[in-house]
Amino acid sequence: NMECRVCGDKASGFHYGVHACEGCKGFFRRTIRMKLEYEKCERSCKIQKKNRNKCQYCRFQKCLALGMSHNAIRF
């Protein structure tokens, strides 16, 4: 039983190089595919399941810091 490295929810698998839940997987995919840019935040918000949708900037930064990558495809 793995935990999502981004928000701590139950991970659904290994997505983009990191154990992640469906919510964070979809969030990362949409951000990359649609080339979304979020308003910069300096607060280093703590991303948890209950508040993961509050600060998209910090959520995406955490995805990147954990090594999530669009190129991380498993063979």
Rank of each mutant, 00 (worst) to 15 (best):
C4Q: 02
C58A: 02
K46C: 11
K10R: 12
R74G: 15
K54Y: 15
N51H: 10
C24D: 06
E39F: 06
C58Y: 05
R33V: 14
C41F: 05
G67L: 01
K50A: 13
K50L: 10
S44D: 13
G17Q: 07
S12V: 07
K10M: 09
K50P: 10
H15G: 06
Y57S: 05
G67W: 03
K25A: 14
K40T: 08
G23A: 13
N71I: 05
N1E: 10
F28T: 00
R59Y: 14
N1Q: 07
N53F: 10
R29A: 15
I47G: 07
E37A: 09
E37L: 08
R5Y: 10
F28H: 00
E3C: 06
V6R: 01
G8T: 04
A11R: 04
L64D: 01
E37Y: 06
H19R: 11
H19Q: 15
I73A: 15
H19C: 13
I47Y: 05
F14C: 10
V6L: 03
R29G: 14
A20C: 15
F60P: 01
F28C: 01
L64A: 05
V6E: 04
K40Y: 10
T31K: 00
C24K: 03
R5H: 07
A65V: 10
Q61H: 07
L64S: 03
K40E: 09
Y57Q: 01
G67K: 05
Q61G: 03
R29T: 15
N53G: 11
C21V: 03
V18C: 09
R52L: 10
A11N: 07
R5P: 05
F27W: 02
N1H: 08
K40D: 05
K50W: 11
H15C: 11
C55H: 04
R59D: 05
F75K: 15
K54T: 12
S69H: 11
K40H: 14
I73T: 15
Q61K: 10
K62E: 04
C4Y: 02
K50Y: 06
K25F: 09
V6D: 01
Y38A: 02
C24Q: 00
C55P: 01
A20M: 04
N71A: 11
F75Y: 13
Y57F: 08
E37K: 11
C21D: 01
D9G: 08
N53Y: 07
M34H: 13
G17R: 02
M34Y: 09
Y57T: 02
M2Q: 05
C21H: 02
C4H: 04
M2T: 08
F60M: 10
G8Y: 05
K46F: 13
N1P: 04
F28I: 00
C41M: 00
Y57R: 03
R30E: 14
M34K: 10
E42P: 07
K62G: 03
I47R: 04
C21I: 03
C7F: 01
I32V: 14
L64K: 08
I73E: 15
L64Y: 04
R5A: 15
R74P: 15
M34C: 11
G13C: 03
I73D: 14
M34V: 03
G17N: 07
G23W: 14
C58M: 03
L36T: 09
K62L: 06
G23S: 15
A65H: 06
E22S: 05
R43K: 14
I47M: 09
G17W: 00
K35H: 08
C7V: 01
E3T: 09
V18I: 11
Q61T: 06
F60T: 04
N51Y: 05
L36P: 05
H70K: 13
E3G: 08
G13H: 04
C45M: 04
R30S: 10
C7W: 00
D9Q: 05
S44M: 13
L66P: 03
L64F: 01
V6G: 01
K40C: 07
K46A: 12
D9T: 06
L64G: 01
R74N: 12
H15F: 12
L64T: 06
F28E: 03
A72T: 07
R29M: 13
K35R: 11
N71E: 15
F27V: 00
M68H: 02
R43T: 08
R52P: 15
K40R: 10
Y38P: 02
K46G: 08
K46P: 13
F14G: 06
F14T: 13
R59L: 14
F60Y: 07
A11M: 06
K54W: 11
G67T: 02
H15N: 06
M34I: 01
K10W: 08
S69F: 07
A72E: 14
F14W: 09
L36W: 07
C63G: 03
K62Q: 06
R33N: 14
Y38M: 03
A11W: 02
I47V: 12
M34F: 12
C55W: 01
D9Y: 04
R43Y: 15
C41L: 00
R43N: 15
Q56V: 05
D9H: 03
K35W: 04
R52K: 15
C4E: 04
S69T: 12
L64R: 05
A20L: 09
R5G: 11
E39I: 08
E37I: 10
C21R: 01
Q56P: 12
N1R: 06
K54I: 11
L64Q: 08
K62Y: 05
S44N: 14
M68Y: 02
N71S: 13
F14E: 13
K35I: 03
L36K: 08
N71W: 05
G8S: 05
G13Y: 05
M2P: 03
C63N: 00
G26M: 10
G8C: 03
C7M: 00
T31Y: 04
H15T: 08
N1D: 11
S69M: 13
N51Q: 11
K40G: 04
G23E: 15
M2N: 07
A20T: 11
H15S: 09
R30L: 09
N51C: 04
H70E: 15
C24T: 02
Q61R: 06
A72N: 10
C58T: 00
F14K: 12
I73V: 15
R30V: 08
I73N: 13
E42C: 05
Q61I: 07
F28V: 04
Q61F: 00
L66A: 10
R59V: 04
V6C: 01
E3H: 11
E3Y: 08
V18P: 04
N71H: 08
Y16I: 06
R52C: 07
C21K: 03
M68C: 00
T31F: 05
F60K: 02
Q56D: 15
Y38L: 04
H15L: 07
C45E: 01
K35F: 06
A11P: 08
V18T: 07
L36Q: 07
C63V: 00
A65D: 14
K62H: 04
L66D: 04
R30H: 10
A20K: 02
E37H: 10
F28R: 01
M68L: 02
T31A: 06
S69I: 08
S69K: 13
G26N: 13
L36R: 07
K54Q: 12
Q61C: 03
C7A: 03
A20H: 03
G13V: 05
E37V: 11
V18R: 03
R33H: 10
H70M: 14
F27P: 01
E22H: 05
R52I: 12
E37G: 06
L66T: 14
M34E: 14
I32D: 04
F60L: 11
K25R: 12
H19N: 13
G26E: 15
Q56H: 15
R30M: 08
E37S: 10
L64V: 12
I73R: 09
R33C: 14
A72K: 08
G23V: 06
G23D: 15
I47L: 09
Q56A: 14
A65W: 07
I32E: 04
C41T: 06
Y38W: 05
K10V: 12
M68F: 04
A65I: 08
N51R: 05
K10D: 12
I47C: 04
A72R: 07
G23Y: 13
S44K: 14
V6F: 04
